[in-house]
């Protein structure tokens, strides 16, 4: 009984996270301006990271947590680079 409830609630959480990812993706595609797309990309990174955490709880596999950590770091670096690029037109000053 408990196990069934847990499985269903993890599934529900994953559906919600997938919907959140879809919203972020819509913002990337729709725009309308470059900064909106980057904001969408940043949100997509975070949502994907949370999705991986949910997978980790579901399967008890450590590798998901390593992946989530790496996605958090890489997402930060790329968003910063994009924002710098928008401001000056070049990444390294």
């Amino acid at each position: 009984m408990t196990a069934l409830a847990i499985v269903w609630s993890i599934l529900l959480a994953q559906v919600m996270l997938a919907l959140a990812m879809a919203f972020a993706l819509y913002r990337i595609i729709k725009g309308p301006r470059a900064q909106d797309r980057i904001l969408g990309l940043d949100t997509l990174y975070i949502n994907a990271m949370l999705m991986l955490l949910a997978f980790g709880i579901r399967t008890a596999n450590t590798i998901y947590f390593e992946t989530a950590l790496i996605i958090a770091l890489i997402g930060f670096a790329s968003s910063i680079a994009f924002a710098k690029f928008l401001m000056r037109g070049e990444v390294i000053e």
Partner: peptide, 25 residues
């Protein structure tokens, strides 16, 4: 665990919904 997970997912969904619905950047 279920409560925290569902609440967290719901918060994330609300945040992304804001990304979708709010009018200006």
């Amino acid at each position: 665990v279920c409560g925290l997970l569902l609440l967290g997912a719901a918060m994330t969904l609300i945040g992304s919904l804001g990304l979708l619905r709010l009018p200006s950047f």
